[in-house]
Every structure is written in structure tokens, then in C-alpha cells.
């Protein structure tokens, strides 16, 4: 059984129906506009552990939902 994401509109659906969307975060410590542009363009947080993401229900209601996922296990703790 594949991992399920609870879509607020469609209920629990297989992860394969969804498209991953990152919430990009540029650290405040980067103050130089050039560094900030570089960070926004290329860098990733690539978090190892619990993280909050946006997922798009591509093969479903085609709406976005917010998902809490542990990237070490793919366990989904919350979706809304």
C-alpha cells in the first residue's frame, strides 16, 4: 500500500496522485542581495526530518494542501 496523503477535499489518497511543492526559505542571515538571489535560485534546505510542505493534488481536485512529512521515513503526520 502506498503512502496516503489526506487531502482536505478528497480524503486519503495515494501519494502518487500528488505533486510535491517546496516552501522555499532563504535564511535571514543572508543580507547581500546577490547572495539572496543565488540562494533563491539554486539552494535547497533539503531537510532531514519533519518538514512542512505544499502538495498539489494533480490527479484529483487540483488544489493545494499543506502536509507535514518526515523525510527520513515519508511518514505523514498532518495534512490540511
Amino acid at each position: 500500500m502506498s503512502i496516503q496523503i489526506s487531502c482536505p477535499h478528497c480524503g486519503p489518497r495515494p501519494m502518487e496522485e500528488f505533486l510535491f511543492g517546496e516552501i522555499p526559505v532563504t535564511p535571514d542571515s543572508l543580507t547581500d542581495p546577490r547572495d539572496r538571489d543565488l540562494d533563491r535560485g539554486f539552494m535547497h534546505q533539503n531537510p532531514e526530518g519533519p518538514t512542512v510542505e505544499r502538495w498539489f493534488h494533480l490527479y484529483g481536485c487540483r488544489r493545494w494542501c499543506t502536509v507535514e512529512r518526515d523525510t527520513r521515513t515519508d511518514e505523514i503526520t498532518e495534512a490540511g
Binding site: I3, M15, L19, F20, E22, H44, N46, E48, T71, R72, T73, D74
Partner: peptide, 8 residues
């Protein structure tokens, strides 16, 4: 397509 460290 999703980033992950899981060997699932």
C-alpha cells in the same frame, strides 16, 4: 518526484 531520505 518528492525529496526524501527514505529507502521505501
Amino acid at each position: 518526484r518528492q525529496p526524501s531520505y527514505s529507502y521505501r
